[in-house]
Design a protein around this nucleic acid. Sequence first.
DNA 1: GCGCTTTTGTTAGAGGCTAACAAGTTGTTA
DNA 2: TAACAACTTGTTAGCCTCTAACAAAAGCGC
Lengths: 189, 189
Amino acid sequence: MEGNLRERRKALVRQEIREHAMRLFLEHGYDNTTVADVAEAAGVSSMTVFRHFPTKEDLVLTDEFDPVLAARIKATPADRPLIRRIGDTLVESLAQASLADLEMMLARLRLGLATPALRARWLDNEYLTQTVIVEALSDGRHDEFRLRVVAGSCLAAVTTALIRWAESGGQGAPHELVAQALDILQEES
Amino acid sequence: MEGNLRERRKALVRQEIREHAMRLFLEHGYDNTTVADVAEAAGVSSMTVFRHFPTKEDLVLTDEFDPVLAARIKATPADRPLIRRIGDTLVESLAQASLADLEMMLARLRLGLATPALRARWLDNEYLTQTVIVEALSDGRHDEFRLRVVAGSCLAAVTTALIRWAESGGQGAPHELVAQALDILQEES
DNA sequence: GCGCTTTTGTTAGAGGCTAACAAGTTGTTA
DNA sequence: TAACAACTTGTTAGCCTCTAACAAAAGCGC
């Protein structure tokens, strides 16, 4: 509710566009829905859609969770094992997520699993998340290469769990599956 | 050298197109080179390029290593730890790779690191490789979820090592970096 | 040589995305 | 309140990736 009228209107338009986009994508499929369709449904022009979301994929995948995740990881005790600092934070964040957040995540996963273009962008976002995690853990105590390897592996395990969660209908608590995946990673290696 | 004249010519055209594509991409950048440019350099029409390579990204990323990798993993002793069956196979394959193969891999990595679209597709290919590895290891002895987690984590570690290799100029033997990443994965968890 | 298949070129077009300009709206200052 | 600046939007034109449909050319088996 903060900001001037201009900013509030902008945020509102943005939200409106994304909601119509997600609805249309889920109803008719991502590839069968054009940006022009989304624009028309949201009552704006195609250009306006692209001004708010640089690419069509961003209509589905944009989120602002990375900074939050980075802060939480940074706040963990520095003497704990890396895999725990990363893994536990992810599990806890998932456990605390609201129902609306989980539904959004499930919708994204469903779309991502159904359309290769989205899946690729999803994985690329994960790559960027890896970088964010590495930066959050960089304190001179650990080699950067080590940080990258651990962060990448953890994220891979988490993603595998989330995909499994989505494939089995999104029932149950995803953070339990994620915790299970991280356990496997630890005991296996 | 086998096959009809038709098949040989087809393979030749395909190779010609890809070589010109890689050359132009490395010279002028991926985004600054259109498929029409590649077609003209190779002496064919744009349509022909798309018939040989479904997307522009495939000009860079297409390879046929997955089946080979799957066969090699399948041939490893079934009583070894999963992480070893996967990791050692990857390290050995890299160690045996020809200089030409390594150069091609380095060129791909360079382009992939420079252009987001390629990086996304690269990561998506990795996801497919994960599936291939899981299938190769499926023998009823292991839970499929476990296989996915381990395969995904190993590939993440390997990719991290290859990126590091490319970022540091492609000097030295990549398989040593990969082995190092896998060691980190094991000792860390 | 003669059908048959495969490969190629051409054309037309859809759809994602960008640049440039004009028009309308909001914020600010006199 | 009037005027000027900053921002957002729509419109238009166009580039580029990629697909479909049809016709022409080249290799294949008889």
